[in-house]
């Protein structure tokens, strides 16, 4: 465990030295504030459009941070050849991978807290209430969803040749799952075999990232989720991330690093 924590702390330090997070945060703040300054029929209490756009920017920023950070971890170590002295120490490849995962996940979590804090301030400035329970649920679900994304990107970094191709493929797959993943079975029902079977199988195999997206509920002030589905979704995220990490570890342990 100490080895994992040591590797993860290095990843976190590296992430906060880079400018990606700051640039994305400033962009999110600027765009939201500019949109918030628009005069809409002399009504200063209109807030939902602002919440929706702010949440969209937070989601895009968090995906950019999580995917690009995790996709470059192992290729960068290989390219700079620092992976060899690292593995020469009493640390296994699986521990290195888990350390990288934990570092990326914790760093993404801290970034998310900053983003959601800004979101909370913007909402509170225009709305009378501050539904803390719903916001905490949203940030937790979002963070656990990033665990799956980071695990997928780490696996991709071991399978694909370059970080750029891994980034592109991860963005396309994850955006695709978020946009249409939930509807695949509905589409499959209207199809003929074998396409129907293939699409249904894909629907059940793909990670259900849509479960972690409660933006609509937050934007429109729906009450917080019930405790059962909330914790079940978190458990699902941990299991799914573990599956991808296990696959990544299996590939990493068999990979020639030369």
């Amino acid at each position: 465990m100490n080895n994992i924590l040591a590797v993860s702390s290095v990843v976190m330090r590296e992430m906060y030295r880079r400018k990606d997070f700051y640039v994305l945060l400033i962009l999110t703040v600027l765009i939201t504030l500019i949109l918030g300054s628009v005069n809409l029929f002399n009504d200063s209490n209109i807030v939902r459009y602002l919440k929706e756009i702010c949440l969209l920017l937070i989601w895009i920023s968090s995906l950019v941070i999580a995917i690009t950070t995790s996709a470059r971890q192992i290729p960068a170590e290989r390219e700079s050849r620092t992976i060899f002295p690292l593995l020469a120490k009493p640390v296994s490849r699986t521990e290195v991978l888990l350390g990288k995962f934990l570092g990326c996940w914790l760093a993404s979590g801290i970034a998310l807290v900053c983003f959601y804090l800004f979101f909370g301030i913007i909402s509170a400035a225009r709305e009378s209430g501050w539904p803390l329970g719903s916001y905490l649920q949203a940030v937790t679900l979002h963070w656990f969803m990033l665990a799956i994304v980071i695990a997928i990107a780490l696996l991709g970094s071991l399978v694909f040749a370059a970080p750029s191709s891994n980034n592109t493929i991860c963005f396309i797959v994850i955006a695709g799952i978020l946009l249409i993943g939930r509807h695949l079975h509905k589409v499959a029902v209207g199809m003929e075999q074998p396409s129907r079977g293939i699409l249904t199988l894909l629907y059940f195999l793909l990670p259900q990232l849509g479960w972690f997206d409660v933006r609509e509920r937050i934007t429109h002030n729906w009450p917080p989720l019930d405790v059962g589905p909330f914790f079940l979704a978190l458990a699902y995220a941990l299991v799914t991330a573990s599956v991808f990490l296990f696959a990544a570890s299996w590939v990493f342990n068999r990979k020639r690093l030369q």
Partner: peptide, 24 residues
């Protein structure tokens, strides 16, 4: 359609309301 579909309905608005009647 399936257990995933049923479960996913917890995470997005699944009740019909109108804003002029109070909304969510």
């Amino acid at each position: 359609l399936d257990v995933f579909d049923r479960f996913s309905r917890n995470f997005f608005p699944a009740v019909h309301t109108h804003l002029d009647e109070g909304g969510a």
